[in-house]
Amino acid sequence: MIFNKIKADKRNLYIILLFLLLIITIFFAIISGNSGLSPYTVLKVIIYKTTGISFSDISPRDMAIVWNMRMPRVLMAILAGTALATAGALYQGCFRNPLVEPFILGASSGASFGAALAIVFPALFLPIHISAFIFALLAVIAAYMLSRHKGEINSVGLVLSGVIIGSVFSALVSIMKYLSEDTQLREITFWMMGGLYHASWSDIYVNAVIIVICFILSWILSWKLNLISIGDEEAKSLGINPDKYKTIFIITATLMTAVCVSTVGIIAWVGLMMPHAARLLTGPDNRYVIPLASLGGAVYLLICDTIARTLTMGEIPIGIITSIIGAPFLIWILRAKSGRLFL
């Protein structure tokens, strides 16, 4: 019993450490950039904006750079990392498959189609991110309805219908690309590679509300996710209705994924990788996996985005960075640590 306590404390310690790391990364991300602001200036702007204490020597230019350009990106990276990592953990638990990622049910293809549609036909008056959000949701709902049979959700069927819906939307994206002009094609391609450069304060508000609510709900229900992840019948015998909770988890994960994809485009790897990294630290108990994965996702995306905007004079799409750093990590996990992650 004492041993149990120590272990729990260690896991809480990981959460605290990762939270501190996030704070450090945030500060580091805000001060890095090409305009050569000193950390002191950045600190002054943040203090002024959050507490209202004014300093006489902040120039409007510095204020704009810190508060209107860097701050939204930093916050968006944190939100997107949290959303993708949490959604990944939820989907992996629901599907009882550690290799599932948040886009498994077609959210990414749906969002891409929505974005392409808005780019190619601007006359539809739909802003890109709203169109992307709608189609991401539509894709997942379609996959979900296809696999629902007599009120029961078959996990294999759900993955399969996700693949089908995903490929249909990919084909539709290709049609859009085919119909588009050169500049539009370029825009579609860039959108699909993902990036946080669009992030504005109004995006942050919408994302923050949805993602924070969904994250808290996931964390509250994380023990039930443990039960779902060991199988339908066993979950039932332990007093959980698996279909009800699977539906709740899928809706939660999909909302988070859709709102985040519609703002930042498709960012691969975070949702697959972070739950694994969290499991390596604490084991598969989702009460710890969910907070650790989302903190890890936030730190990881923040670092990747900072690299993306500072490595060269221009901007590198963040999807490239997350994949280049993420792929070797996942290969390492699969080869060296697979025994601790799955059978």
Partner: peptide, 15 residues
């Protein structure tokens, strides 16, 4: 159940 094949390595105590 007859056999239990968890996809995730929960510890005995967690199960």
């Amino acid at each position: 159940p007859q056999e239990h094949k968890p996809p995730f390595p929960f510890t005995v105590r967690e199960i």
